[in-house]
């Protein structure tokens, strides 16, 4: 029975060629039901994989299932159960948000009255309650992204595919969009497949990651490993790294540079029981070194990405969101 499948996505030797260009090269996946991050540099094949899974384009060879439904033989049943937020700007600019989202709900099979009610509810959930009767063409980029998200979940799908949902957003808009996506998964119980080239987006929202590189699966594994409570800590400071290290040493905590692929203000701090976190906090406060990053060092997404794909390109790191001049995130 498809509904009982333990996997959100299964692919078997999935291949997509555009002439001589191989977009997907015999991809084998068995992805559990989780918030899944589809990570990789631009051109890695992420969007192509999403389009094949949604039936928007045909694979050259191989097979795939989503939620246990075969994408070729059971595509209509599948499309009732999934939502899609494309990367491109795909909105009826001349329509109001309420009309457009309600229309998309009707296209997913909802009766007219229910579609209008669901549209109003979902637009409220994504923070567009007041603006829902305004024409979409007058919306900011962030508001348009919210309308795209609303149309993707208006029919209450089991799984929603989000293709680069933070594209074009400023740091604050990005932060709010990620909070919405987290909420969709954690509170509303909708499975999420988040395609992104930004590590922070995936790390924040997802439980499982698939890394694609040149059309191949470079990694497919849970994002948070069970040993993270005892692992060493990866720290990045925004200023005074020497003073920070000196204070740590005075507290008897060992630290070493994070490695040549990281910036010079990033360190691996050896875990020494429960006092380690306190010592880092105190060292940062006493040396006036603002903490930018604090997370388990063992097999972080960055490590995984570097092992799988190579160096992290600048665009894969996101600028932290700021409210009132202070970083909201960063120092975890």
């Amino acid at each position: 029975m498809p509904a009982d499948s333990p996997f959100s996505i299964e692919t078997t030797r999935l291949e997509k060629r555009y002439g001589n260009v191989v977009a997907l090269d015999h991809v084998d996946l068995a992805v559990p039901r989780a918030a899944v991050g589809l990570l990789g540099p631009n051109g890695a094949g992420k969007s192509t994989l999403l389009k094949i899974l949604l039936g928007l384009t045909k694979a050259t060879s191989g097979s795939a299932k989503v939620l246990g439904w075969d994408i070729d033989r059971q595509s209509r049943e599948l499309r009732r159960r999934v939502g899609y937020m494309p990367e491109a700007e795909t909105l009826a600019e001349g329509a109001t948000a309420a009309d457009f989202v309600a229309h998309m709900a009707e296209m997913s099979g909802l009766p007219r009255r229910a579609a209008r009610q669901r549209a109003a509810d979902v637009l409220y959930q994504v923070g567009l309650d007041e603006e829902r009767y305004r024409l979409i063409k007058g919306f900011s980029t962030g508001m348009k992204q919210r309308v795209k998200l609303a149309q993707a979940i208006v029919h209450d799908p089991e799984l929603v595919f989000l293709d680069e949902p933070t594209n074009g957003l400023d740091p604050l808009g990005r932060d709010e969009m990620l909070a919405l996506i987290e909420r969709i998964h954690r509170q509303l119980g909708i499975l999420v497949v988040l395609s992104s080239h930004i590590l922070d987006d995936v790390e924040r929202v997802c439980d499982y990651v698939v890394v694609l590189d040149h059309g191949r699966v470079a990694a497919s594994q849970p994002l948070r490993q069970p040993e993270e409570a005892t692992a060493d800590l990866h720290v990045r400071v925004g200023s005074h790294p020497e003073a920070f290290l000196r204070r740590l040493a005075e507290a008897g905590i060992a630290a070493r540079p994070a490695g040549i692929e990281y910036a010079t203000d990033e360190f691996i701090v050896s875990r020494d029981g429960d006092r380690t976190l306190d010592a880092i906090r105190d060292a940062a406060a006493e040396s006036d070194a603002s903490l930018r990053l604090l997370r388990p060092a063992a097999r972080s997404l960055e490590d995984l990405y570097i092992d799988s794909v190579g160096a992290i390109p600048p665009e894969a790191r996101a600028e932290p969101a700021r409210r009132n001049g202070r970083a909201r995130r960063g120092a975890a």
Partner: peptide, 13 residues
């Protein structure tokens, strides 16, 4: 308006 992916990813064929 690039709406075709939104239509074709829904049950309407």
């Amino acid at each position: 308006d690039r709406l075709l992916p939104l239509y074709f990813s829904r049950p309407i064929g």
